[in-house]
Design a protein around this nucleic acid. Sequence first.
DNA 1: CGCGGAGTTGAAACGTCTCAATTGTAGTGG
DNA 2: CCACTACAATTGAGACGTTTCAACTCCGCG
Lengths: 246, 246
Amino acid sequence: MTKTIASSRCHHNPQVSCGDCRLNAICLPISLHITDIDKLDEIIQRGRPLQKGEFLYRAGEPFQSVYAIRSGTIKSIRVTNDGLEQVTGFYLPGEIVGMDGLAQNQYSNSAMALETSAVCEIPFTRLEELSLQIPSLQRHFFQLMSKEITEDQQLITLLSKNSAEERVASLLLSISTRNANRQLSALEFRLPMSRADIGNYLGLTIETVSRVFSRFQKQDILSVDKKEISILDIDALRTAANAVTC
Amino acid sequence: MTKTIASSRCHHNPQVSCGDCRLNAICLPISLHITDIDKLDEIIQRGRPLQKGEFLYRAGEPFQSVYAIRSGTIKSIRVTNDGLEQVTGFYLPGEIVGMDGLAQNQYSNSAMALETSAVCEIPFTRLEELSLQIPSLQRHFFQLMSKEITEDQQLITLLSKNSAEERVASLLLSISTRNANRQLSALEFRLPMSRADIGNYLGLTIETVSRVFSRFQKQDILSVDKKEISILDIDALRTAANAVTC
DNA sequence: CGCGGAGTTGAAACGTCTCAATTGTAGTGG
DNA sequence: CCACTACAATTGAGACGTTTCAACTCCGCG
């Protein structure tokens, strides 16, 4: 599925407008009237899909746009002073990435495609202008940024208070929930990211992530086949996640 | 100093307008023309100072305002499902707290005064209206939220990648820098928060924080007397912090 | 004076990391 | 089609750093 080339029916198809996009119930247009959606459509730019490993933008580049994910998965990464990478987020279809760039007029993260991905580019100065005309858009954007803040704080709590098992379980539940919001299966899905990305995001080593997966399999909570995940006992997974219900 | 009652010269004095406030070079007004500052002033509400331990707002309360700190220190805390607290931030004079509440129209954190503190309440719906009229205010607010995001991501990186010593050193450098921005000493200051708050914020136990302070003292990097901190060797402290230059 | 909270210090326990070996899988070329 | 390589993932054993538990000090305050 992720390897299909762009066609009129394909997720990566660059020709779809916001009004027709199957994600418009969860993406930016959710806040807009029909007439306003067209205005939004006019400023959105849709390019060719990104291939796995390609950068959407890199840390330090001048901030110009935020991006709505249309298909695929994007990870955002910060580079620490000593050259290590820190994965700061995974962005699935319908989600917005790039808002970290506003503060300093340059991106503080890099964004990389984890698989073939299509994005809608939203030039920020034009979005700002539009926000001055459409109060509900301004509010929605404030809310989007606030949501990013609360999600980051959830991750902070996870890193600060929770064990390896709790962290991995929380991430799986988060992905499960976000899949469900997109009408996909909450119990069976393919992880778009590697064990290394998971570990990096959760503050764990690859080996620890792997061991947790193994333990969950032995407990019949999960069935894991490489990146294919089946949640066999979601209540047990919720229990294992403790605290955080993403 | 922190126990002085409000007087015309006191930091906690509720009568000061934004135009006269000694923080206006680093607070919200930084983005505004003189005429616009008056408009901002009109919507800002200043109440009596909060005493140590008092809540500015509590998680779950309906979101109505963001708050600019005028004096003192506020900590924001999330409560996890299992009842533990997670400190998500410390807010010093000139900084804005409460933006996490926007996403869900209710605060996701509680905010508590760590010492006697005065705040300027900014009703959000009025700030929104004003932002529609003053583009630079809208932009500034977007930037403020973006700044909160990048700072949270810095903390995520710190928790995920850095040792106890690096975390404590980073926090001290952050406070030092923020003090310097307010024309206070970068090398000698009083920590407004307890060891418990520091540990909680940094994902460490009280004991570990205490041990790190002791080690830094033995290395002549710091002089610690309860909450009074003197940075004796800021270069060594930067080295100890590694990576993160807050 | 004695109480309680905050902070410090020590010793052992614990969980994750590190290092290393092994397996499995996808991609490449003979 | 199979051998070969490169990479991702798994698994084990020991090392390491932080936590836990406990005792103790310090200080403000009734």
